[in-house]
Design a protein around this nucleic acid. Structure first.
Lengths: 239, 239, 239, 239
DNA sequence: CATGAATGAGACTTCATTCAT
DNA sequence: AATGAATGAAGTCTCATTCAT
């Protein structure tokens, strides 16, 4: 349910709603592919199968269209989270769900839209940033809730700010996709799921409350080992 | 030693080098602030205190200038890594150094440039990507080396692809940056260092070779705990 | 039937065709007056009574417009040849028609365009040359046909390459044009026809199969005459 | 001996004269190769081995340099004619000399400069045209003299204006070179001489006083022949 | 004198946006 | 309601020309 109303003179018929959807879809594709500036209203109109002028009768300008595209994308993801989250599952199950869902959704045109958000959210010349902050909050809310619950149960470490843990989760996901995009690798559904599982595995380890005593011992062992190695390397010429 | 020389007739005198620096600085500022497309040669010239034409006599075009701006920025970072890395330190010390340095450089004056790289590196229309790929490789090399060494010593887990570990490290850092950017928060030096320390702490945990038996036991304890909790919640109304 | 359609989004309505004509006319005028480089899109637009941007919505660029201008001009001439050629006439009649028509079209509104073609066709930097070569071929075809037929009938000399004969015909015509251009003389219709008739007369003589014996005798008579004259001039001071 | 003085502040030393020659040579090359607009002062300076600014200290601007290039070129040709013309030869020998010399001189960078003259002579925006007309006159003078002498002796037809005969001679020569340039054929010295001989042969035939009676008879024979041919073609289906 | 360096003026081209039909 | 057509505004880039050193 979109909360974003706009357009000076938006038609309100039932057919019109389809038009809006078409334009938004075309806009999403083009913006994701080309970025904000390189996307042209001409191409968006063409892909939507309508004339350029029509676009402007549904949206008051390129900026507004872009804002709607971003907002709708966020809405979709938020919806997917709120709808699919296994409310009865364990913290780890919920966590795994969020990671998997996120990766899947991003696979379609995620990196493009991510970059779009990044570049548009930054420019001060429009009010998008305000909206964006709120969307970002709602979008990370499910993860934050899960993490908070985990902390309350003692299953997630509490010695670092929640915000940092959030970055620990979302960051790698985006980076993985970014890598794939740069390398022009097309990820299959299977690959995505494999990566998701690996990510969950590693991330979950990072989220564990540190076993102080154990960790200290492990570190001690490592340190001694390295010191010894360096000591042995002393007598020999530098390779 | 920069290997980027071009443009039709680039002045080469000793004073000229200052001009080049001025332009690069202005370019860095504007590109970082506005992004590639929204940055105009007019503004760059103005901030450098020279005429537009002069810019083009030092750089053969907007793209080359942008490429140089990015390349120089990378060079700085790479330099900082190669210069400051404690070659005699333990794996963990080196790892900590990389994370801390990275975060500092990014958050101090890199937010805009980071976004620039992220936005422009993706789109295939510029040939920036070619230059970028190589820089990206050199730039991630120190971390990769450290991780590889860690794996060889058994201090870093070897059961997931190295690429994933890299994403595990860079991802969160970029996300922290992203957060700061969107929120338009300026972090103080102290805040940055605190964050860096926390990040190192958490990331290092993620990089540890998994103690399979221990992890399984811990998970079992958690699962039982949650099951029990849900059982007890049965009789009460859903909060 | 023009086969030249392009530009990103060319209007196609019935009114648009008038626009295209207007622009082509303005383009022809300006290109003819100023040459390719000195002609500006601004002036073309102004003379066509439209904005600069409109020009570029009908033609994808200055070069395409220029190419169309030239092509259309050639088309007119070629049309005039193919339509008016007296197919039932004698070789000489057809030859005369070609010369007369050519001269008329050139001198009436072709001076500028001729110079345009001459100047721009030569430089390899434009890709006009490709288009031009083919047009040039079609444009010289009628004359070539007539000359070939003349040769077959024995009415036109066969002892020199056809290519040279072509230059013998087109060369003088272009030179007449050049003269008129440099002298900025406007020739009246009558003057043009007189010149055409004279040209035909002289050119036809040049095309005649040489009567070897007769020519040799004539030359002998001339040589003797001159020798005699020089002999007589010996005693007198050089005038 | 150049009659063209110019430059606001031209150095007058003996070395300076070499500089001027260098610049003029470079200018000639570049203008011939690229045409007026595409020629840049930068390239001219570079080819002359001096700095751009120096060019402007010897010539007050691009236009003046171009004018001097053209004027010098004409001067050269005129000189070659006036110097080498066999004053004691027959009309035909002199005529042959002019044709041969012309073709040879043009071979170097003639077509380029021809086009340059054509396009620059036309533009009204500078006073070049006045100078040009005079140069053109002096340049055609030798041929005009020879033709006039031929007419006086009765060896050259007098029934058409001298100006037309001039075009009959110069036109084909330029056209031949133009053809070669367009086809990107490099003409060897031998080819040039062969072509020159053929041209002389054909042109001389055209310049002969018409043997009215003979020509009329020949035409009669041709006409009858064609009429007969057409008559015979009547009964057969059109091929 | 020669030139390195700077620039004003202007060209082509693109595109979001408007408006009459 | 939809669009074909037109355009203002802006941007990148080039080059002849000037001037202090």
């Amino acid at each position: 349910m979109s909360t974003h109303t706009s357009s000076r003179r938006t038609p309100a018929g039932v057919k019109s709603q389809q038009r809006v959807k078409d334009i938004l879809q075309a806009g999403r594709d083009v913006f994701a592919e080309k970025g904000y500036d390189a996307a042209t209203s001409a191409e968006i109109a063409q892909r939507a199968g309508i004339s350029e002028a029509t676009v402007f009768s549904y949206f008051s300008g390129k900026r507004e269209l872009c804002a709607r595209v971003i907002a709708d994308w966020y809405d979709e993801i938020i919806d997917a989270f709120e709808t699919g989250l296994p409310r009865e599952g364990t913290v780890r199950q919920q966590f795994a769900f969020i990671v998997r869902t996120h990766l899947r959704l991003m696979l379609v045109n995620g990196t493009g839209l991510c970059a779009l958000v990044l570049s548009e959210g930054r420019s001060k010349q429009h009010d998008l940033s305000e909206t964006l902050t709120e969307l970002q909050r709602r979008y990370t809310a499910p993860l934050m809730d899960v993490l908070a619950r985990g902390q309350a149960l003692g299953h997630v470490r509490s010695d670092v700010p929640l915000r940092l843990l959030r970055s620990m989760v979302f960051g790698p996901m985006e980076h993985v996709l970014w890598d794939a995009t740069l390398a022009k690798r097309r990820l299959s559904q299977t690959q995505i799921d494999t990566t998701a599982n690996e990510l969950v595995e590693v991330l979950w380890a990072a989220l564990q409350p540190p076993d102080v005593k154990l960790a200290a011992l492990a570190q001690f062992r490592q340190d001694v080992e390295e010191a010894s190695r360096r000591y042995e390397a002393q007598g020999k010429p530098i390779s």
